[in-house]
Structure formats: C-alpha cells, structure tokens
Design a protein around this nucleic acid. Structure first.
Lengths: 348, 348
DNA sequence: CTTGCGACCGTTACCGCTAACATAGTGCAT
DNA sequence: ATGCACTATGTTAGCGGTAACGGTCGCAAG
C-alpha cells in the first residue's frame, strides 16, 4: 500500500512524510538525519536538511516522545515568580540544563499545596524526565505521585525534613539560629520579628523557629512580632516597622523574614532619622541584588539560590558536579548560607 | 486477541489498560470517565474513578495529544524573568487561562533573537494551541515558523510595527512623547536620558525615539544620555545619576528607561540632598509595585501589564472580552498607559 | 568466486490514547 | 410483536514518530 499525502492543503502541518517525499528517502532516514542518529551518507543528509529547511518542517515531539518513551522536559515547581528568589533559582537550573538537551518547564503554586498537587499532576501527565520542586512539604497525593513516577525528584531550598528522593538546600532553622546568635553577640536584647503570614511559607516559619530557639537558649524572649500578607513588600516593610516601633518603643532590633520588607524598614528608619544600627539594628534574609542600591547595606544571609538551582539540575540531568561527584538520588545536599553583617548590625 | 499486561513489575508506569482491567471495563470507557466526555453510567464512573485513584494512575497526555490532535498548552515567550514586568504579564495570562483548560508554558530569551528562535522552535515542536510572545521584532525564520504554525499568535507589549497575527500592547513611541510633553509642560528644559544599552530592547528604544521626537518638536535637545547593561538596576541608577549630574551640572530632568534605575536615581538624589523635583525632576517607566515603598513617588507610566496579559490570553483562548467582543485574529489592540506624575515632577 | 562485513537505508510493529463508528440493551409508542 | 430513539459500552484504526531488525550493495579477504 502506498501512502500519499494530499498536496491540496498547503497549510496542513507538515510531517516526516512530507520531508521524506520532498527528499526522496524514507521517513526513517529523515528521522535519523534530524536527530543526528545512525549512519546517513553526507549526500542524503544534506538533501534532507535542505528539504526540511525549505518546507519549514518542525518535528512533532509529541509523536517522537510517545514512540521513544523519552521526553526532554524537567518539571520545575515553585511557589511564586514575584519573589525574585525563584527566578534566580530558575537561572541556575536553566543554565546547567542548557547543554544537556533537557528543558525546564515551570509551574507556579502561589504557596498553595492544592495548586501544587494540581500542577504536579499536570506535569507528570507529560512524563517529564525529572521534577524539581520547592520545599519538603507536599500533600499526600503529591508525595505518592512523585514516589510512583519513577523519575528523579529533587526538593530544593530546604533540607529540614525528609525528602522523597534527593534534596538540595539550606537549613532554615540553622539560618535563623545563626542570625539570632549574631544579633545577640552584637548586644541587642529587645528583638522583634516581622514577616509573612502565609501559613504555607514553611521556610520562613522554620527560620523563625530556629531564631526563637537560639534566643530562648540565651534567655531572651521575642519582644514583639508582626505579620503581613499581600501588597508591596517594600511598603509593608515601612508600615510594619513604624507599627512595631510605636507599639514597642524599647525594641532595639528588627529581624525581617525577607530582604524586601527589610529594605522597606531600613528606608523608614532612615526617613524617620532613627540611628541605624545603634538605636535599632536590622536584618533580613536572602541577599537580593536589589539591596546593593540601598543607602546602607542591610544585614542578610545569602540563600545560595543560584547554587541550589545548579545542583538540582545536575542531579536531574545525572551530571557530575565540578568536583567529579555524581549524585544518584536519595542524597541530601546541604549548602551553607553566608552571614553578611552589612551596615545594620553594630560592630562589637 | 487478548492483550494482557505483565503483573510482575509493580513499578511499571500505568496505562489506561491497567485501570480498565482493575475496573472491568474497556479502555475507552475509562478514557471517557477520566475526560468527562460521553455517556457513562454513574455506577461505572465511580468504579473507574475509584480504581484510578487506588492505582495512582496519571494519564499520559503525550499519547492523548497525539491521538486527539489537541494540546492544551500555550507557549509564552518573554525576554526575561528578572524584570518584574514579565512575571506580571504572566499573572494576567495564567489568571485568564485558568478556567479554559489551557496552560501556559514559559520560555525565556534573554533578549536574544537567536534564543527566541530556538525557544520558539522547541515550543512549536510540542504543537501548542497558541503562542504569546513579547515584541514585534523576530528573526525571519521565527516569523516564518509562526506564520506556518496555523495557531493563534499574539505579540504583546508593543504595537509600533506590523504583527504576524494579533497584537496587544501600548505604543512606546507615544508613551515617550507623552512623557516628554509632560516634562516640557512643567518647565524643564535641560533633559537627560538614562537607560539600558541592550541593543534588542526595542521597546526602550522606541520610547526614547518618541521622547526625543517630542523634545525636538519643541526645539529642546537632549542634554546628556547614559547607558548601562547588567548589574543591579537600583545600584546602576544611583551610579548613572551621579555620573550625569557631575558631567552635566545644568541638567534639570532625568528620564529613566525603567522604574528600577529611576528608583536608584531618586535614592541618590535624596541622599545627596538634591531638591526633587525643583532642582531636578525624575521620571521612570512601568509603574512597578516596588515604588510604593519609596520615600517619594516617582513619576512613571503604567504599562498595562496585567491587562496585556489578560487580553492576550483571551485572544489565544478565543474568549469574549468583558465587553462581549471576540477577537478572531489579525487584530491590534492598543492599550493606553496612564501617566502618573507622582512627586518627582514639579507641579505647574 | 565466494564469503563476510560495514555502511547505508527501508520495513514493521508498536508507543498510549482517542475519534468515529458499531453494537447491545431498554423503554415506549405504534 | 415491531420498530425506533436513546443510552451505555465496545471495536477499529489511526495520530506521527522511533526501536529494532532486515535487506542491499560495494569491496577486501579467504
């Protein structure tokens, strides 16, 4: 039986057969040429490429993936894009995925476990060759799906918990402790916390836990705390700072759950003529680039975002690290954030 | 012929057949249940759903898409994620796509036409049901691919040019002109421009063109200009502002190509004790949320980002707008940005 | 003159799912 | 009883590629 394609419709989307007919070889040979696989003579290779180019053929990866059982996609699931934190992780991921033939596909959950589950389901239904997702907390169904998927799963950002497969991140509890210790060492004793209210921002919660833990060990209670949700973080930082300083005048240190509200607080203090870091000290978390432009350098901790992205991508792609190490799965990689004192914690 | 699946391997990825065997109906019926299509009795529906749930079945969209020739993906191609502008457009897109069954898939070009072409090729090879991409400037090959693809194509952000299919955006030339007129009306006459150097940021270029055009018509030349690339925008804004004000002391207005460097400039001026807006006026572009937290409100123009995302998604999804209008393709929708004078242009 | 082998290219049988059509049962008016 | 409309389910034939294997041809070695 000879199959032919109707020449009539010029806008039909092209298939391998079109290229094969145009170049006088079999579909298989065209496929081989376009994938650079198997032996094809230089002459036919060029003939095929020429035909494909002229026709404007774009391969159908759907068919290809179904036939080969291989998909060059990696699902990346993150809580938010408006955070500046996650785009940076993404950079790390796509950067190292670039020369592996793998491609990241991003899904956003808005910090909702249910949305995460839905996004994950959708992604797995495209049979990606790996999944990278933020955090260690997921719905039961999501965990089951991941465990069943039979692909590398890397949970990033956080390592305080038990991963499904691999994990790359920092210990937020330890980060909170470290910051508390630095603050105590600088002599501050009336400390307040300002942060997000999001019930599902587990990492911010863990930082606060570590922070309070270290304070408690030194016998220093948290003097005040203030939470927010939504809105412009910079503005919220201003407002919350004003509120706390009015409500608790004796407060001498403000620990923010992220740099953005910390920056807002810093701007407020400078505006209000408050002596930073002597009257009040400030610290944030993340080490965002934005801070470089501020009048004073906010104390913060770098969360190793780029490096987390890189390592996670390496695991999914099965790449050796720069040190020659190969992570096969089931490993936990802890990165160590660096404390940057900046200009908003007084030197001892 | 009776097909059976080997029960041996418990980690084999599941197919419709597994669910069909587990629930005692044909694959087709399972397919119908899972897609909510066609008539299925309540009894079998529940039996099937139960079996699917218990097995942890995740459909294979690759096979489904190939068979049905329908893919619920929309390709979205943008220059950058670290700009805050594009995530907001994305929000608009995903928000309106949410209840259409369509799903956005994001690709990033880093302002490189070649990367855009590569990303587009990759995307089209997944046969999405629509493409949304930033700007009207693309490589020839990219334009050809889009024209051949036979799907809705929406070019966003900019309308100063000729679109392939549909376009939603603002006129950046006009935006530049409007800002120039407002600045002139406020009495400023020694105006400088500070912006990105990226050769492929066509929209910034067009704004500058419109800006200079309006100045020229009033017989006012641009006194100075300064370009940057890379680095922290806020910091660059500070540095560039300092450089310009030193080099051209008579400058009385600084027009920035985006709000981020504008904010840096504003912080510099406040630090340096420069009287804003009397000694020097400032204006940016975009209306980013960040600005709300600044000590003074920077003059800017809202670029209608959310609305652009929404409209673009509506076109791709074939949804009626809130006014009942239905865009079929080939239309250009111009949105009108709103000038916000803020506190950095003196009132007349 | 075979034989063997590698380079090159074609044939066949799927991949997992769905469109389209076919079939069996059921109730109801004729 | 007969036919018909309608519901609920099954059967068949692909979708557009690719893995695996088969064939052909030219040429050097036996």
């Amino acid at each position: 039986m000879i199959k032919t394609t109707p020449k009539s419709d010029p806008q039909r989307t092209l298939t391998l057969r079109d290229v094969s007919e145009a170049s006088g070889v079999s579909e298989m040979t065209v496929s081989r040429v376009l994938r650079n696989r198997g032996d094809v003579s230089e002459a036919t290779r060029e003939r095929v490429l020429e035909a494909a180019r002229k026709l404007g053929y774009v391969p159908n990866k759907i068919a290809g993936a179904l036939a080969s059982q291989r998909v060059n996609l990696v699902g990346v699931i993150i809580p938010s894009l408006s955070n500046m934190v996650f785009p940076e992780v993404l950079s790390g991921i796509s950067e190292t995925l670039e020369d592996t033939g793998l491609q990241p596909v991003v899904g956003v959950t808005n910090y909702s476990p249910e949305r995460e589950e839905a996004v994950l389901y959708e992604m797995l239904s495209w049979r990606p060759s790996g999944v990278i997702l933020a955090g260690l907390e997921h719905t039961e169904a999501a965990q089951a799906m991941l465990a069943r998927a039979g692909i590398p799963v890397v949970e990033i950002m956080d390592i305080d918990g038990s991963p499904i497969d691999s994990a790359v991140g920092i210990s937020h509890r330890r980060a909170g402790r470290q910051m508390a210790e630095a603050i105590l060492a600088a002599g501050y004793r009336n400390i307040a916390f300002l942060g997000t209210m999001m019930p599902y921002d587990h990492r911010a919660r863990k930082r606060l836990e570590g922070f309070e833990d270290a304070l408690a060990r030194a016998g220093v209670p948290l003097v005040d705390r203030e939470f927010y949700s939504g809105g412009s973080a910079l503005l919220k930082g201003r407002e919350m700072t004003e509120a706390v300083l009015h409500r608790s005048p004796k407060v001498d240190f403000l620990y923010y759950s992220n740099d953005m509200i910390g920056a807002g607080g810093l701007l407020y203090c400078l505006d209000a003529g408050i002596d930073v870091p002597n009257r009040v000290g400030l610290a944030g978390f993340n080490g965002v680039e934005l801070l470089d432009g501020l009048p004073r350098r906010l104390a913060t901790m770098d969360a190793c975002r780029l490096e987390i992205g890189r390592k996670a991508a390496q695991i999914v792609a099965g790449i050796r690290g720069s040190d020659g190490s190969l992570t096969l799965g089931g490993e936990v990689i802890e990165l160590l954030p660096v404390l940057q004192l900046g200009d908003t914690i007084r030197k001892i």
